[in-house]
Nucleic acid binder design. Structure first.
Ligand code: MN
Ligand code: MN
Ligand code: ZN
Ligand code: ZN
Lengths: 137, 137
DNA sequence: AGTAATCGTGCAATGGAAGTGCATTTCTTA
DNA sequence: TAAGAAATGCACTTCCATTGCACGATTACT
């Protein structure tokens, strides 16, 4: 049993063939991926299965959704120690206007905001759009 | 000719009956509105007309889009002196998890971020989710 | 091993929202 | 008033997210 399978089991996710492949694909990507991306990568697999695979991964804290404003949800692997599930890992996301890829800026946290009286923050999302390191070179 | 008509003309938008109504509706709302909201408010009007009305308003700097992460685009009137069109009015938006309404926090600008080397910011979006002033009372 | 229960997968269908093409109506202007 | 431009209405399309249901695979239990 390989390391991915062990990892999935540690997250209480049964390591099926499809799940191993999806995890591997996500791990190889250094950018966030849409369901469509994954669908293209595994043409043989059914869309629903991939959809539910991502849902499962999300519930178990293996991936987090990335809403970069393009209108299609993306997913990225949670880093070790990521606390997305409890809303404590509010890192930035960057969307490149050139290559259209979206990256987790895991080290960059959303800055603290002083809200007006009466407003209570529970969650936040911050996306920066511009030119990524690969495209600005 | 009323003040709204004069205002629309100052923005190079012909003040048709529909546009006056939509503008008035937006002005009376103190939260961002979806196309669907407006559609419901004016059941007799055609959705496409409302859609294009908003597009026109947006192009002319009368409203700006609000992407609050709910998956449906919202619109809000630009305040006097709003510079959305040139990307210089990066104010915060707040989405209430209780009443589901989204508000422009016009006075609260998105804080400056130091990006990693190679990344160039051109635009940004920041949404805070939580409980609004009306729901936290 | 045998059986039931649970979980994963595949297929078909739905639904919401954005967006487009084209004919028709309304408005502007000469 | 007639020509041209702009706005409107209707029909359709597309895209993506999501669900219901049936079937296949895996696990748990006796
Ligand atoms: Mn991320
Ligand atoms: Mn706003
Ligand atoms: Zn790029
Ligand atoms: Zn509220």
């Amino acid at each position: 049993m390989n390391t991915i399978a062990i990892f999935l089991e540690s997250k209480k996710v049964r390591p099926t063939a499809m799940r191993l492949l999806v995890y591997k694909y996500m791990a190889q990507s250094n950018v966030a991926r849409t369901l469509g991306d994954i669908e293209n990568a595994f043409a043989k697999a059914d869309r629903t299965t991939l959809y539910r695979t991502l849902k499962t991964f999300e519930e178990k804290g293996i991936v987090h959704q990335v809403d970069d404003g393009t209108g299609t949800i993306k997913y990225a692997l949670c880093e070790a120690g990521c606390n997305c599930d409890i809303g404590r890992d509010l890192h930035l996301h960057f969307h490149c206007n050139n290559c259209r890829e979206t990256t987790c800026l895991t080290e960059h946290k959303i800055p603290q905001i002083n809200l007006p009286d009466g407003y209570i923050a529970e969650d936040m999302n911050m996306v920066i759009k511009g030119i990524c390191e690969h495209c600005s070179g």
